[in-house]
Write a protein that binds this DNA or RNA. Structure first.
Lengths: 180, 180
DNA sequence: GTTGCCATGTAAGGTGTTACATGATTTA
DNA sequence: TAAATCATGTAACACCTTACATGGCAAC
């Protein structure tokens, strides 16, 4: 999985410029890339070279020129092929768990402070996610099914954060009961 | 977060050679690096250069020499510093969610097949995780608290997989109710 | 008049992956 | 005799990140 297929997905929705794609990525936690120029502009050039997208350069008065990319039939079939390919396992990298693995050297208050920070950070992230969902730039709902899929994708993220908060709470309660 | 602190963690438990660390990583889903040579041996050299570990070369008959790395006081204080540093947010990269985002172009049976595959793959992963936990190479439990922490770290992973399976099941049920 | 938006792009580096290379010994 | 284990290391490259570079216009 790389950013290419995610970009193709957005372009299957409607044509976009690199700048617009960048904003979409940057504004979305679920589409988790940082939305940096380097990758997006390079990937667009590569996709054009491979015939997955067409470019139209729009010259505008008083504004910089804009390169608008539209998906081609080749691009659509590549996207469909990828969508039908075997799902990869999610890759979860929670460095906090690794911190915890060696945290028995800490004093009880130090450890609890750490856990409280984690709980708070995840809580903030959950709120940010909800806020972002409220005002998100694109939300395809051309069919009832598409709307449902997007709702469930969003639910997946919310569940993850909620689950994480529950977990850290039970961890803190459990630790409080262990004698020093 | 990089592999360095995870390696320091293991070395704070007991001295290991690169080869042993590699096996530990390769056999652990929770310590999620692939356990490849390149990184491990290079990182050991770097950590040695930075005074975080000492090396002892053990020559043995009929076997290749072994470089056993032991954590130094500098290493321990670096580890402690990292453990007390602000937790990073978990980074979750589920490319399947991105596949789903554009999956409304699929026929209902194609989509359900995809979801079934995901459900099955996550199920397999959960079983593999449990099996791995049963026979894991290291399981520090020098104190009741340390044992509890490791149990909760493991529980975190199990919860994630279980949650994911529940989610995909409810997604499949929901889709079954949407008219074509 | 400084900040932010529009819009494109480049440079450099971090972190991780797979595959290659060597060579002896043990196990099937 | 073929494969796996022990043990170290290198090469090449995939993917992503932060920061830099340019330049006009709008808003405050």
């Amino acid at each position: 999985m790389n950013i290419k297929h995610a970009m193709l997905g957005f372009l299957s929705w409607q044509p976009f410029s690199g700048y617009e794609l960048k904003k979409i990525f940057a504004s979305s936690i679920a589409f988790y890339w940082s939305g940096n120029n380097n990758q997006i502009y390079r990937t667009l050039v590569e996709m054009h070279r491979d015939g997955l997208v067409d470019v139209e350069v729009r010259q505008r008065e008083n504004y910089p020129a804009k390169k608008v990319y539209a998906i081609t039939d080749t691009g659509r079939s590549e996207l469909r092929k990828w969508i039908l390919s075997d799902p990869e396992l999610p890759q979860l990298r929670n460095s906090f768990l690794i911190q915890l693995a060696w945290a028995d050297g800490l004093e009880a208050p130090e450890l609890d402070t750490l856990l409280a920070k984690y709980e708070q950070e995840v809580g903030v992230q959950l709120m940010m996610y909800r806020e972002q969902e409220r005002r998100k730039l694109i939300n395809p709902s051309r069919t009832a099914r598409e709307a449902f899929l997007w709702k469930m994708i969003s639910a997946n993220w919310e569940r993850y954060y909620e689950n994480e908060i529950e977990w850290v709470r039970s961890l803190r309660l459990g630790l409080a009961e262990i004698p020093a």
